[in-house]
Computed example of a mutant assay.
Amino acid sequence: MRAPEDPDRAELIRLMTDPITREYLGGSVDYASRQALELSPLGLSWGHWVIARAEDESRMIGSITLDYDRGELELSYALLPEATGQGLAAASCRQLLAWAQENLEDDHVIAVTQTRNKRSVALLQRLGFSVRRGLEEFGSQQLMMERSLETALPSAEEIAAFTPPYAPAAWR
């Protein structure tokens, strides 16, 4: 993870407008929001980082945030389609949660994901999140999940070995 930089702008816009990436995130941003992304300075807001591979830190493959938009510390992440399914979201979330445990005074963190986004629900469960409540946003059913920041994070091995409770037999 690193701070966003101006060369990330094209990939950030792609992340915000890609229909596959945005399927579970309320859809692509509108034209006005895209224009704002094209014109706004990057890297000036707290809690927003770029996800990049260690071997090519200059190329953004996703974004991850910790912010207080809902009045509580909230984790959010998104990867470009070609970067999904490789453990990058898990590693980035674990790294950011570890940072939050070390540097913030919050006692918990929330995350919101669509109920039909099974991969994201499973990732959050692997990271130790549990369901707080359901809600509706962007015309879809969502889960607000939470985890204590006072509880130890699972190891990378535990995260990789976790099988979600709803997993098909082929996953077990």
Rank of each mutant, 00 (worst) to 15 (best):
T115Q: 13
T115W: 10
T115K: 08
R116M: 07
R116P: 01
R116W: 03
N117S: 12
K118V: 12
S120F: 00
S120L: 00
V121E: 02
V121N: 03
V121W: 01
V121K: 01
A122C: 07
L123A: 06
L124S: 10
Q125S: 06
Q125H: 09
R126Q: 07
R126K: 15
L127C: 06
G128M: 03
G128F: 04
G128D: 05
F129Q: 10
F129M: 04
S130Y: 06
S130I: 03
S130K: 03
R132E: 10
R132W: 11
R132T: 01
R133M: 05
G134W: 03
G134M: 10
L135S: 09
L135F: 04
E136K: 05
E136R: 11
E136S: 07
E136T: 12
F138P: 07
F138H: 15
F138N: 12
F138R: 10
G139F: 09
G139T: 06
S140Q: 14
Q141I: 03
Q141C: 12
Q142Y: 08
Q142T: 01
Q142S: 10
L143N: 09
L143F: 11
L143G: 02
M144T: 09
M145D: 09
R147F: 06
R147N: 03
S148L: 02
S148N: 08
S148H: 02
L149T: 01
T151I: 07
T151Q: 07
A152I: 07
A152M: 12
L153N: 08
L153H: 04
L153C: 05
L153D: 04
L153G: 02
P154N: 09
P154C: 11
A156D: 06
E157T: 09
E157V: 14
E158H: 14
E158V: 10
E158S: 14
